[in-house]
Design a protein around this nucleic acid. Structure first.
Length: 425
RNA sequence: GUGGUCGUAGCUCAGCUGGUCAGAGCGCCGCGUUGUGGUCGCGGAUGUCGGGGGUUCGAAUCCCCUCGGUCACCCCA
């Protein structure tokens, strides 16, 4: 480790087997949850022209600071994707698929920031987007899918925080009210937050500092400054979630990181994880984003979920263990390896998962490998078996019996299929 | 990017205020069983003590720089 000439770059990590099996299973679980709701996989490039991610809006400085951007050999200013939504919207605008358009994705995401647990320079997200409908029932569907996904992973100690940003006009009006309100109490805020009052007043609501929180607990909430239409939208969302039996907490001070959100915003936060960066799934509606990226005005909503954080939350609840890596049989050949070579090919072609030892190791070492592989059966090919045209099938686990048998090579596949189906309870 | 903290074999870690301090457990390899694993017994290998520089007669141990982990801020998944 310390002597290795190269190591994974700061803030990145290798996921080795058997841990990586959890990733495979998580992705399969996610795909199954969202595909049964009609979402299809979108594969899009991991980098885009910088403008796709960096738009003219408040907070762009912060976004830019964390962007992994560079100029390529053709002089194009590009950036590795820092999040999933913008690429999806860009693809929507480019290809103009029939709305409503429902897609899901699984992708690495890159942010140039100082790493800590649950925060990496390359992390991985699964997510989905639904473009082309402003129906609040879509909000309910999207949030429900997030909830179902977390349930499918086995997570139970998760809190759903719900808020609304209203329309851009609602938001603008509210920000004005909030800024004024905060300005009057500037001196009571934590010193570090005072500067944000003028530039990003809503960020002040999100502060983790006690002094600030004490003040903002009384701050005007956006829910009291919504237009009738926005209020109706939000009410329908809450009604839908309640009808689904999904418990949520209204969080008037929930401020999502991206500026493009309108109306519903939400986060799922695990209650057992102590980290400051705990949100495992978050998203919201972004009815102006398509237009911002050059498309026809089109409403949209989606969420992203960080795989690394999901797994941390799963660990905290001791759920979603890695599945056992399992092969069915391990071939031991003490006659030189030719038969192991041919027999493993034959078994695999027959759908039997198998492995073998290489390097012409001694019987004992090969048996050790068989044991370590977790296979319930070892197949032994030695001089005697060769002469008789048979194979010795030795059970390695009590669940599959204890007596080894001599089986003719012709019957071997059928015998193994039968034996593998007879695991004792 | 700011501040704190940690970094010793593949893994988890012990090494007090500098002087057999290069170790333990697990894992790995071999042998006991030249055709039988998981148990047991015996034996063995692996570290420039994250890297570089400095102080000292002498540094894993003190100082500086650097790389990486981690925690908080910031930001967010």
């Amino acid at each position: 480790m310390a002597r290795a000439k190269y190591q994974a770059p700061k803030g990145t990590q290798d996921i080795l087997p058997p841990e990586s099996a959890r990733w495979e299973r998580l992705l399969a679980t996610y795909a199954s949850v969202v595909e049964r709701a009609g979402y299809g996989l979108l594969q899009s490039p991991m980098f885009e022209e910088l403008g796709v991610f960096q738009r003219e809006s408040e907070g762009a400085d912060a976004v830019r600071k964390e962007m992994y951007d560079f100029t390529d050999k053709g002089g194009r200013h590009v950036a590795l994707r820092p999040e999933g939504t913008a690429s999806v919207v860009r693809a929507f605008v480019q290809h103009q698929p029939t709305a409503p358009w429902k897609v899901w994705y699984a992708t690495p995401a890159f942010r140039y920031e100082r790493a800590q647990a649950g925060r990496y320079r390359q992390h991985h997200q699964v997510g989905l987007e639904m473009l082309g409908s402003a129906d609040p029932d879509v909000d309910v569907e999207v949030i429900s899918l997030g909830w179902e996904f977390l349930q499918a992973l086995g997570l139970r100690q998760v809190e759903l925080l719900l808020n609304t940003m209203g329309t851009p006009a609602d938001r603008l009006a509210y920000v004005g009210v909030l800024r004024e309100w905060l300005a009057e109490r500037r001196g009571e805020l934590a010193e570090e937050d005072r500067g944000k009052v003028d530039s990003h007043p809503m960020r002040v609501l999100d502060s983790k500092r006690r002094d600030t929180q004490r003040v903002t607990a009384e701050a005007p909430a956006i829910s009291d400054h919504l237009s009738p239409e926005s209020a109706a939208h939000f009410a329908r969302v809450q009604e839908g979630l309640t009808a689904r039996g999904i418990v949520f907490n209204l969080a008037p001070r929930l401020v999502r990181g991206f500026d493009y959100y309108t109306h519903t915003t939400f986060e799922f936060v695990p209650s057992l994880v102590e980290n400051a960066q705990a949100t495992i799934l978050g998203g919201g509606r972004y009815d102006g984003l398509v237009e911002e990226l050059g498309g026809q005005p089109t409403p949209g909503i989606g969420f992203g979920s960080g795989i690394e954080r999901l797994l941390i939350a799963c660990d905290a609840e001791a759920v979603f263990p890695a599945p056992d890596r399992r092969i069915d049989v391990f071939v031991i050949d003490v006659t030189g390896g030719t038969h192991a070579r041919d027999l493993t090919a034959e078994l695999r072609a027959a759908g039997i998962r198998c492995d073998r030892a290489f390097d012409q190791k001694a019987m004992r070492a090969q048996m050790k490998g068989a044991d370590r592989s977790g296979a319930p059966f070892a197949i032994i090919i030695g001089d005697q078996e060769l002469a008789d045209g048979v194979a010795t099938v030795r059970p390695l686990r009590a669940d599959f019996g204890s007596d080894q048998q001599t089986i003719s090579r012709a019957d071997l596949v059928a015998h193994l299929r039968d034996a593998l189906s007879k695991e004792a309870p």
